[in-house]
């Protein structure tokens, strides 16, 4: 793989399960080296199936994919040597300690004996598990397990990292710590990260580019900003101090763009000219002597993008199906 060729390249990848719909239905995408690619979609959309195929754990039904410059079907062992993966379940052995996990992983990866201890310690420090290193994993919290999972994926120094819903079920603090580390890996170590998530804010905060998958198909792709711009302009919601002033408020704001009336006299209006029109809105309200209880600018979110592309809200769109059912 040279520096300009994609780290991950997928062409018309398909995976069909017996007695089920196509879990992955002909997706195409390319991820550049050093990029964080967010794969966003509800439960059962095909995210994990895609990751399992790209990590060589599940053969595709058809299509092609190259990871780290290697074909996932013909060069499985080279692919595995180039990647690290933290799959959906933090698959750990409750009986072993964190350090023992890392030593085992290092041995199985073929690391020289002399390097294993050093590497294990280095990674334990990196993920903040030094103190818990010699405790059995069964007693770890969800966040600690996820951090150990990440450390295990990094043991052999991979160039590409797959993270399948890495923060599902974590508290805010653990989540932001993990985000920080993932961002650092990409920024400082130039690692390519393929991250699946069902959290909008995670994709928004971490990903350089986002692919939205639904029913096995990619329905939108781009940077978070591009995607949001694609679906329209920001809106401003104005709540009058006097609920009876709603009509007057609507009359004044109608000139800006399409408006919607909410409860208690509140009015939401689109700003086709972007957020710079906010100052003008304030001026109009001031001139009309309309007293305002609150005024809020709403940027379009990835949820709006998902809604626009699929007709559903992301939250609750999942079908809760096991993506690896044969």
């Amino acid at each position: 793989m040279n520096s300009s060729s994609p780290a991950i390249e997928i062409e018309q990848l398909v995976r069909e399960f017996r007695k089920g719909p196509r879990a992955v239905d002909g997706i195409d995408l390319a991820v550049s080296p050093g990029e964080i690619y967010g794969f966003l979609g509800p439960n059962g959309a095909g995210k994990s199936t895609t990751v399992l195929m790209l990590t060589t754990l599940l053969p595709p039904t058809s299509g092609r994919a190259r990871v780290g410059g290697y074909d996932i079907l013909r060069q499985g062992s080279q692919v595995r040597a180039s990647i690290g993966a933290a799959l959906q379940e933090a698959a750990l052995d409750a009986i072993l300690t964190g350090r023992e996990h890392l030593m085992l992983q290092a041995t199985l990866q073929g690391m020289p004996k002399a390097d294993r201890t050093r590497r294990a310690q280095e990674l334990l420090e990196r993920v903040g598990l030094t103190e818990a290193a010699d405790r059995r994993v069964g007693g770890y919290s969800g966040g600690m397990k996820r951090r150990l999972d990440l450390a295990l994926a990094l043991v052999h120094g991979p160039r590409i990292l797959f993270l399948d819903e890495p923060t599902t079920g974590l508290d805010l603090q653990s989540r932001s710590a993990l985000w920080e580390e993932v961002a650092r890996l990409a920024k400082e170590e130039g690692m390519t990260v393929f991250l699946t998530t069902q959290y909008l804010e995670e994709a928004d905060a971490l990903a350089d580019r986002v692919g939205i998958i639904d029913h096995g198909k990619i329905v939108a792709e781009g940077t978070p900003t591009q995607l949001k711009e694609e679906i329209g302009s920001p809106t401003v919601e104005v709540v009058p101090a006097d609920a009876g002033a709603g009509d007057a408020l609507a009359q004044r704001l109608a000139s800006f763009g399409q408006l919607a009336r909410n409860g208690r006299g509140a009015v939401t209006v689109q700003l086709p000219g972007g957020e710079s029109q906010l100052a003008e809105v304030v001026r109009v309200l001031d001139q009309a002597h309309l007293k305002v209880a609150s005024l809020q600018l709403h940027q379009p979110s990835l949820d709006d993008v998902f809604l626009a592309k699929t007709g559903r809200k992301l939250e609750g769109a999942g079908e809760d199906q096991d993506e690896r059912q044969p």
């Binding site: 040597a81 041995t107 199985l108 990866q109 073929g110 690391m111 020289p112 390097d115 590497r119 280095e122 420090e125 990196r126 993920v127 903040g128 951090r147 043991v155 052999h156 120094g157 710590a177 920080e180 580390e181 650092r184 400082e188 170590e189």
Partner: peptide, 20 residues
């Protein structure tokens, strides 16, 4: 969470070592 990265040179693991 911070530390320097580590480049790791890996030889193919030996069968007996894996079994062990």
């Amino acid at each position: 969470m911070s530390a320097s990265p580590s480049a790791v040179a890996l030889a193919p693991p030996h069968l007996f070592e894996q079994v062990g």
